[in-house]
């Protein structure tokens, strides 16, 4: 990933992690739930530092390998630090039919990064996604929480300007 170390990484202060893991500890006799804990951390940090694996494993009473296995399995759990703004561009078939390739090309050329990369200033990360359920108003681009439909390549510059 381009220059991933050059910008601040959002992380969890050690005490918050301990708190979170304590809360996520399964109740007496209840089964562990690794994905749930990973989601909780991801929601706060935007990614998961693999250095947290042993602590997560301990809180759930599972092995480090169990946690690493779940973490590596799910595409939307990032282990790289997240950019400030997350651009998701849909490559699903309805968007494909509506030429999302041209939209991707416009974003790539304006940001100088490829899919699954982050700009060197940490401003944008660009992720592919397969369908956001907006197929009737495709092609679709989601920036942070905001979903844009019927996107034309010429819209991209204006969108990006709104996110600093």
């Amino acid at each position: 990933m381009l220059g991933s170390m050059r910008y601040a990484v959002k992380t969890l202060p050690p005490n918050d992690l301990v708190d979170l893991l304590t809360r996520a500890r399964p109740a007496e006799g209840a089964p562990p739930n690794i994905l749930r804990v990973l989601h909780a951390i991801h929601d706060v940090c935007g990614s998961i530092d693999p250095g947290f694996i042993p602590a997560i494993a301990q809180s759930q009473g599972v092995t480090d390998a169990d946690v690493a296995g779940v973490l590596s399995y799910y595409p939307s759990l990032n282990t790289q630090p997240a950019g400030r703004h997350r651009i998701q561009v849909c490559l699903g078939e309805s968007c494909l039919a509506n030429r999302c390739d041209l939209v991707v090309a416009a974003i790539r050329s304006q940001l100088g990064i490829d899919l699954d990369q982050t700009t060197s200033d940490g401003r944008f990360m660009l992720e592919p996604v397969s369908c956001v359920g907006n197929c009737a108003v495709s092609p679709s681009v989601r920036i942070d929480g905001e979903l844009h439909g019927r996107v034309r390549p010429s819209d991209i510059a204006g969108f990006l300007d709104r996110y600093r």
Partner: peptide, 20 residues
């Protein structure tokens, strides 16, 4: 968490239990 195969019912149950 972004996995397509989790739409398959048994994979979904595994995921619901917090596993791969």
């Amino acid at each position: 968490a972004g996995s397509y195969v989790c739409g398959e019912e048994t994979a979904l149950l595994e995921s619901l239990e917090g596993r791969r």
